[in-house]
Every structure is written in C-alpha cells, then in structure tokens.
Amino acid sequence: MDRKLRRLLGKIAVLIALVVGALFAGLPVLWMLSSSFKLNTDIFAYPPQLIPPNPTLEAYTAIFTDPVKVRFFLNSYFISLSVTVLTLLVAVLAAYALSRFEFPFKRVLNVVIISVQAVPPITLLIPYFGLIMFLGLYNTYPGLILTYMVFTLPYAIIMMTGYFNTLPRELDEAVKVDGGSSWTALWRVLVPISVPGLVSVGIYTFMIAWNEYLFALTLTKTPEMRTVPIGIQLLMGQHSYEWNQMMSMSILGCIPILLLFLFFQRYFIGGMTAGAVKN
C-alpha cells in the first residue's frame, strides 16, 4: 500500500515536471504558430490571445504570392539538397580510403579532418570574401554550396569511416576474388548496405546547410540569391515589422526539418548522438 502510494506520488510529480518542461519548450513554438495565423494588427493585442481573434491565412498568402520570397525557399531547397548529395558523394570516397586502405600520412589526415571541425566560421569569413570573389563565385550557388561542404564534409567523413569500419572486410574481399576492383566493391557492396549511415549523415548535412546564416549573408548580394534565414532577417529590416509574415515564414522554414525529424526520428537521434558522442 505504502509503495503503491509512493509510486503514485512519484508519478504525479514527474507528470507535473513534464508539463512544466513542455510549457518551457512548447509555448514559444505555439505562439509562433498562432501568430502566423493572425492579422498583423492583432499581434500585440492586449491581453495577448493565444487563439487568433481573426484567424487568417493572410500571412501565408503574402509569402506564396511574392516571387522574391518563394525564391528564398527554392534557393534554400536547391542549395541544401545539392550540399547533401555532394557531401555524401565526396565523403563516401574519402571514408572508403580511410577505412580500407593503409597509406602514408593517414594519421595526419585523420587529425586534420577532426580538428578542421573546430575552425570558427568567423575566422574563414574574412579571407573567404576575397577568395570567393577571386574564384568568380561571389553571389552564386556554387559559392555557397562549396563553402557549406567545407563545414559538412569533416563530420560526414568521420561518420562514414566509422560506419564502413563496422562492415566486415570479407564483403569487399569477395568482390576482389571475383575479379572486381575496389571501386566496384565500394559502389556495389558497401554503399548499398550503408544506407542507414548515409541517411543520418545526410540529415545532419541538410540541417547544417538549411540553417546556415553567416556565409549566406556575406557571400550573396542580390535578393534572388538569398536563402530562407536571410529572407527572414530581411523581413525584419523593413520599415514596418510584418510580424505575422515573419512567423509564417518561420513555420514554412522549419517544415523540411520537421518532416525529416518525423520520418527519420530514429536516425536523427541515433545519428546525431553517435556523431556527437562517438567520433
């Protein structure tokens, strides 16, 4: 009886704590969602209304009917997907070399790849401005895509090397016995069974590219090259604050990440943790 009571009290205490935590985490997000369906004049209504008093899709139509703002989204999707595909491609090749070959300077290369992850973006920003200009990549897609790959590649290589290391070597040896090259072994055998690893690395890469702000701000100039994070900030710089549009753009801006999370939750958490913790 006593134990049952204590268990019940414990359960109630945990539930209260969980609800308090959920308010801390969720209320701001709920407020964002609610504000995106408000008229801009209702944003600072007194007292504040969680349920929009005059619910409207005005803020969303304003985004969808403005070609400049639609372009922000198209840019973000195009850049993030390109970065993801290219990062995976380049990382798979490098990881294969690091996992299956022995060669001089391998340890040095490993240390370089690991420590490169800690290089602060702000350090690279000043020389980048000139360098990207020099390469003729200022205000272009390749400029941003290549820049983002510098930040996504090291993690992707480390993760994929770890993944390949868990796969038995007999697999690629079997290909060799059949007269295949290491190239065939990689693409016909290793890559197809590495899909879970590729998915987690791909999600991580997509998120980095989708969220990047500093370089998108500095290495692009014209509205038609801007990405969603910059677009949101541009809305803030306008003469009057269109809070409802900023919120609807934010909601639209988190949809791809939300979808990735809902569909690949397992990889998401497993992958990120493994990445944060194991490499």
Binding site: A25, G26, P28, V29, W31, M32, S35, I43, W210, N211, Y213, V228, P229, I230, I232, Q233, L235, M236, W243, M246, M247, S250, G253, C254, I257, L258, F261
Partner: peptide, 16 residues
C-alpha cells in the same frame, strides 16, 4: 522542438 528551428527563426521568435 527548439532544435528544429534555425537560428534566424529562433531570433525573430524571441524578438517577438
């Protein structure tokens, strides 16, 4: 949830 938002979104949300 807070993890799913890019910094730009977090910044405007909290400014609001």
């Amino acid at each position: 949830l807070p993890w799913l938002f890019t910094v730009a979104i977090i910044a405007v949300l909290w400014r609001l």
